[in-house]
């Protein structure tokens, strides 16, 4: 089955790097190497509604992420740029002017990804400097305090992605890197200033992107073209001795049993993006192919040359059966299964 294009716009003059959909409003954000971020109304087709101030970032904007919210007022988003800074933006509602709330500085070089914890308390940023920074923020998102710097990766950290499929206070996220690993991080249950790497999976290829399918299942997009599922093996017997874990050394008690489970599909080039929401999963990459799956990994639909001969840099599930994509051609498109 093929994907039907239900909307498309020449959003940017240069490559579209990233997209984000708001969880309460039919609003889509895109960012580009043209150093701009734009917002689109996607309630009916795709219409540009605003453009953020262009003077804020001096280099490509690599990442955009809305803060999770079911409200229709006060949407907030974060941007990460190759200029080494991240910026936070807010508006009163859908169509009002977006204001710069904060600029978050600390990384030595290109910020590659930004993401919010589902309760909005934390923002994570990662960069080519191999580090992940965790920032604690207030309700208005005007103050950002760095509470942790995680430097265990041995290469650029390509992305951070908080668990959005768990409970509201589940402070767990995954990161992927140029060092060919996928890591799972959890806030320590006793010392909330401690963040532990509870799993370190070797993938033999740069991990470009990953998404949560559920609490114990992660899907990754790799440079070698594989779309690969990892699962957490939850052993009932092990859970039984959990009460004894306090006696173990701290390095041991937090290790979880994550394994590489199965390959969902293989692209003919780097898989730059995977996304999951509701019961729809999508992958896209340098081969220009967009593939849509159900939660079991069955392919429901595929579109080849989705952005002409250009590479697809990002795919995002809007809602069941509807996905958005952005490519090197500067186009943002909407598709329906």
């Amino acid at each position: 089955m093929s994907l039907e294009k239900i909307g498309s716009v020449q959003a940017h003059a240069e490559r579209v790097w990233d997209l984000s959909t708001h969880s309460g409003i039919p609003l889509l954000a895109s960012c580009s190497s043209d150093k701009t971020c734009k917002l689109f109304d996607i309630s009916n087709g795709i219409k540009e509604v605003s453009k953020l101030d262009e003077e804020t970032h001096s280099k490509s904007i690599r990442s955009v992420q809305f803060k999770y919210s079911k409200d229709t007022t006060y949407p907030t988003l974060a941007l990460g740029s190759f200029d080494s800074t991240s910026s936070i933006w807010g508006a009163d509602d859908f169509k009002s002017k977006w204001e710069l709330l904060a600029v978050v500085e600390g990384h030595e070089n290109e910020v590659k990804c930004v993401d919010w914890s589902i309760d909005g308390k934390f923002l994570s940023t990662c960069a080519r400097d191999k580090s992940i920074w965790i920032w604690e923020t207030d309700e208005l998102n005007e103050e950002f305090e760095c509470v942790a710097v995680l430097s265990e990766h041995e290469g650029d950290v390509k992305f951070v992605n908080w668990n959005d499929k768990g409970l509201n206070d589940d402070h767990t996220f995954i990161s992927g890197s140029y060092d060919d690993t996928l890591r799972v991080w959890r806030q320590d249950s006793y010392d909330e200033d401690e963040w532990n790497c509870v799993a370190n999976l070797s993938m033999d290829s740069t991990v470009w992107s990953a998404t949560w399918i559920n609490n114990n299942t992660i899907l990754c997009g790799l440079d070698d073209g594989r779309v690969i599922q990892c699962i957490r093996k939850v052993d009932n017997n092990k859970d039984g001795i959990e009460t004894d874990r306090d006696n173990l050394p701290s390095t041991v008690k937090d290790v979880e049993d994550w394994i590489i489970d199965k390959v969902w599909s293989k692209h003919e080039g780097s898989v730059y993006s995977v996304s999951c929401k509701d019961d729809t999963v999508v992958s896209g990459g340098s081969d220009g192919v967009i593939r849509v799956y159900n939660l079991n990994g069955d392919i429901l639909a595929e579109k080849r040359l989705a952005h002409g001969t250009s590479e697809v840099n990002v795919v995002a599930v809007v809602k069941t059966g509807v996905v958005a994509s952005g490519g090197d051609d500067g186009v943002v498109a909407l598709w329906k299964v």
Binding site: R15, S60, R62, F82, K158, Y178, T206, S270, S286
Partner: peptide, 15 residues
């Protein structure tokens, strides 16, 4: 090889 074929690093280098 890894560095030369990493799109993100190449793009950043070009800035």
């Amino acid at each position: 090889n890894k560095q030369l074929n990493d799109k993100e690093r190449v793009c950043a280098a070009c800035e």
